[in-house]
Design a protein around this nucleic acid. Structure first.
Lengths: 242, 242
DNA sequence: TTATATTTGTGTGAAATCAACACTAACGCA
DNA sequence: TGCGTTAGTGTTGATTTCACACAAATATAA
């Protein structure tokens, strides 16, 4: 643990030539989560690239020199699958030497949350893209399973401390739908009464004064997530925790 | 929210030319935390680069084509400051277009935890490097303040759920030292009795049967962190939480 | 040798939170 | 009209959290 000397200047201290651009490409890969009212899904493509032909891959692309990372992720979501205004969060970067068969590609992973999955069945999506139940995916192309796992892990942590789950639901939803969503993400069952107590105790759900239609059972009340109320609460020290 | 078509193949699906290597360089920046028994410090260099001359910068370097990201971070720690065997964790990547004056550089940030800071006073370190109290840093070169904040944020979250704080202490430490460390990291005071109750209740501290020497007050018992005991507990379902 | 300054080390009780649990209500449908 | 299905609602005991004060051990200075 004896410190050396600083021999050469480094990139943060003084000039260093970065002309050769180090022969590393940078990409962004998006883990797009969607919820169909029943299961947590992820949007995948079928890879055409050897040696991963016909395995699922995430949706990604190279970062172009004139866009930052978030912009690249948003562009990918827009260009590849037509999603705009989605919740987006960077997860981490993957840089194994052999992770991409075409060469050295470091990828920055993001996850995003999409609502109304049921309104976008795979038929409407560009052909090879498909919603797949997260828990059915055992293997993917490249290191994408590892990326998916990291994103899911992150989502599970986040979802308990910030109210982002609502991004996966329709604007108006029932408490049971919300609970099911949480159960899908956390992969565990929750107690109905305790869940409702907790959620309604924090005061950012608005009663829509409407009920579910056309269900073959007692219809449930519809609620909306009131983001302004939430921000007000947050500002006065309240922290969301599930 | 209408999906487009997938017009061209992308990097995950089929061949795409990545010859031009997108003129993006990739660097790693390390937020090196150290604890001097009193304050949480971070190791910084004085930047020589305009327009950030004489401002503090983190310790970083370009990623070379034949090393992965973790290797690059470890190399930087070894080459620049002589640290080996340190706790290291990736935080996130920063890719603003204008973040580096020399051109487009995307950086992957890491933080690491160093013990025995008091045994490596700045005199022994390569000249421009210096330990600075984290809470005294208001401004840094590049976007490094933002990187520092992200790393500190991550450390604060991690330290409550995994016992990594011990990396910042000598192998043998007192409970008060441990508590002070947590107070420095979390930037809040903790109740002595409750802290000790919690820590000793989880059974991975070993009594060294030794006491502090040469202190002008009642000497405290020394403890060791028993990582094997911790792993055993962890395996049987125990989760560290502070 | 004695007093002082400093830090260590220890337990209890009140309040808040968590976890487990079961029945009636409302609707569509046969 | 009865059946199947999901919605909606409170209580209690167990657990966890939080606040809080004083005697013991050492070095140092008088």
């Amino acid at each position: 643990m004896k410190p050396n000397t600083i021999s050469e200047p480094n990139i943060n201290v003084a000039l260093k030539e970065i002309q050769d651009f180090s022969k590393i490409a940078v990409s962004v890969d998006c883990v797009i989560f969607g919820y169909d009212g029943k299961n947590l899904n992820v949007l995948v493509l079928e890879s055409d690239m050897d040696p991963y032909k016909s395995q699922w891959s995430l949706i990604g692309d190279l970062v172009s020199p004139d866009e930052d990372l978030d912009q690249a992720a948003l562009r990918i979501l827009r260009e590849r699958v037509g999603f705009t205004d989605v919740y987006l969060e960077q997860v981490k970067s993957f840089g194994s030497l052999t992770r991409h068969p075409l060469g050295r590609v470091i990828t920055v992973s993001y996850y995003s949350l999409i609502s109304k999955v049921d309104h976008m069945p795979s038929a409407v999506l560009p052909l090879p893209a498909k919603w797949v139940n997260v828990y059915d995916i055992k293997k993917m192309a490249f290191d994408h399973k590892e990326i998916l796992d990291a994103a899911l892990d992150r989502l599970r942590k986040r979802v308990r401390y910030i109210p982002i789950g609502f991004n996966l639901l329709d604007p108006e939803f029932t408490l049971s739908q919300l609970q099911n969503l949480y159960e899908s993400i956390l992969n565990q069952t929750l107690d109905k009464r305790n869940f409702r107590k907790k959620i309604t105790a924090m005061d950012f759900l608005t009663d829509c004064h409407k009920f579910q239609q056309e269900v073959a059972h007692r219809p449930a009340k519809l609620y909306k997530f009131d983001i302004e109320k939430y921000h007000a609460l947050e500002a006065s020290g309240f922290v969301f925790e599930l």
